[in-house]
Design a binder for these strands. Structure first.
Lengths: 329, 329
DNA sequence: TAAATTTAAGCAAACGTTTGTTTAATTGGT
DNA sequence: ACCAATTAAACAAACGTTTGCTTAAATTTA
């Protein structure tokens, strides 16, 4: 039912080709009189271009697709804002699809909805693909880039923080404040990210002459409950005076669980969070954090899509932001 | 460069029509031998269907588009999950685009990226369109439904909570606990939502024999800073013993500002929040809230798109969830 | 064994655009 | 007044699918 270019052509008494050109402002091809007729007809018919049809013939699209691992992660909004702004500056549109965090089938479906239509590039947010789905992605001839995640395989384009540094600096923040017994909570020990943060954590301890203890690290999936569980595992008599938490949510988990255990933060326990989202300033006391530049990751991601192949593994800087959860001993 | 159905046809030695049918599993049209040849060829070429082309001829799409007002709102994730689950159950795909919360031009662009391609329906999350953009939306012959927002114009399909009830029950929760001087913070007085919440608030007060005072209501845009500003405006000597906050974020704003003013919650000040997202249980003390069923809104939204015209203005139920910020006087 | 039916596959049109090429009309130069 | 150059618009092919219709071969029926 929707009006097409042909309907306009008929109404304005010109050819579809001319309509197309008027609507695309290709001024070299038509006179002012026809232009007016066409515009009027288009308006009258409430014409809306069928972008899919246009993309079919031009073989080129101006939308970039973002695949997000889950709807819950709160830092993704900052990355998306970065993507959005940069994309808009380049005249690109952004669509987002959610993939399950674990279910490979959901991942596959999300990937397919993106691959099977013309998009100029794909950004994957903190997404850990199965090797099958990775192949699927690589099979499409579309440029892509992972964001906020890094891989052992150095051939995959990605933009993320230096996770070793993240772990190192978070730990160092506590060490500098005089802490010696420091836990690492809710960091996933299977992923590249988790392993490097752990390594950074251990290096920082060793550099300060502290020998890491096995029960100081309580792995988890960066979530609020993972944070709570880690703190529960530590218990009240662990001797720990400081904890590095794998994410802001995890940090709030340890914060609340510490409180439930009767531990005051930062008096009895200091916390350094990783991420530095707005959450840090919403809770009391405000979380000291190693903050990532999520906005820049998003921005760099779209730049990477526009000029692919430049530099595969990019690193965005981090800063430690001192707030209220680290006590100087 | 991507392989097309024709490439497969050539490689398998059959016609494109047959390839299409094999790939679509239209078993009535081909024999097992050809099927195998085609499958093999498709696999070998790494074929990916061009959905845009297919949608062009079938004149029908199975993606539903969600337009979100901003990346910040935290309840949107629940709505989206509801949409996602329900859509998946019906074999539909979901794409999301962000529109600016205020900028009409950004709104328009977001709307266009959605309207100009084949989508089977549009869900608008808490989006207040300019009348121009509303016309744009209505001009497209696509079914649509607003979510988590209602309008004076009863002809617009929408699914939301009963905002009058929200205001009424939030206020009543405090009244029942013995409070009489009750503020309303960070509720937007321009929108339908804000006006109805305000009306519900005033009715509850009057029903309890309390005369509303002008300086008890401090309008705002439902944000964290709006909450803080409202509490700042109340100050320490307002005499208020309870506050209804327009959103969870706003509630956290008044909570933190109250603390900064030296007011203990709930000892000195009780708070009832509106929304009931996970945020309520993350902060200390946990926020008592009038909780909305965001997940159901999303689910109902896709059902509405599938069977349009049934019931224009739908209402999802609310519950008050008692947590820790209301003190019984 | 001839006619009727079933099965398997191909032909060709269509969807709504864009764009290279062609044609027709107008203008300018001499 | 004639030819070249410019301007304005139309023609038609192409993009990658799907699908109604046709054709050809194989099978069944009488």
């Amino acid at each position: 039912m929707a009006a097409t270019i042909k309907d306009i052509a008929r109404l304005a008494g010109v050819s579809p080709a001319t309509v197309s050109r008027v609507l695309a402002n290709k001024t070299a091809f038509y006179g002012p009189a026809t232009a007016e007729k066409v515009q009027a007809a288009a308006l009258k018919l409430g014409y809306r271009k069928n972008t899919a049809a246009a993309e079919l013939v031009t073989q080129h699209s101006n939308v970039i697709a973002v695949v997000v691992n889950s709807v819950k992660t709160n830092f993704s909004s900052q990355i998306i804002t970065g993507i959005q702004d940069t994309a808009a500056a380049h005249g690109l549109n952004v669509i987002i699809v959610y993939a399950g965090i674990t279910d490979p089938e959901a991942q596959r479906k999300a990937l397919l909805t993106v691959i099977e239509r013309p998009v100029m590039g794909i950004l994957l947010l903190s997404l850990n693909l199965t090797s099958e789905n990775l192949q699927l992605l690589q099979g499409a001839q579309t440029p892509y880039c992972f964001l906020s995640i890094a891989f052992d395989d150095g051939d995959l384009p990605s933009i993320a923080s230096d996770d070793w540094q993240v772990g190192y600096q978070a730990t160092q923040t506590l060490l500098k404040a005089g802490h010696r017994k420091i836990g690492l909570a809710a960091v996933d020990s299977d992923s590249h990210t988790g392993r490097f943060r752990l390594a950074g954590y251990e290096s920082a301890l060793r550099d300060a002459g502290v020998t890491p203890q096995a029960d100081w690290v309580q792995p988890g999936v960066y979530s609020y409950v993972a944070g709570r569980e880690a703190m529960t595992a530590y218990g009240v008599a662990s001797g720990l005076t400081g904890v590095v938490a794998g994410s802001d949510m995890a940090a709030i988990g340890v914060l609340n669980q510490a409180r439930d255990l009767g531990l005051a933060v930062p008096t009895d326990l200091s916390i350094v969070s990783i991420d530095g989202t707005e959450m840090c300033e919403l809770v009391q006391p405000q979380l000291t954090s190693v903050s990532q530049n999520f906005y820049d990751m998003g921005a760099a991601g779209v730049r990477q899509l526009l000029a692919p192949g430049k530099q595969l593994q990019q690193v965005t800087p981090i800063q430690v932001v001192d707030r209220q959860t680290v006590r100087v001993l």
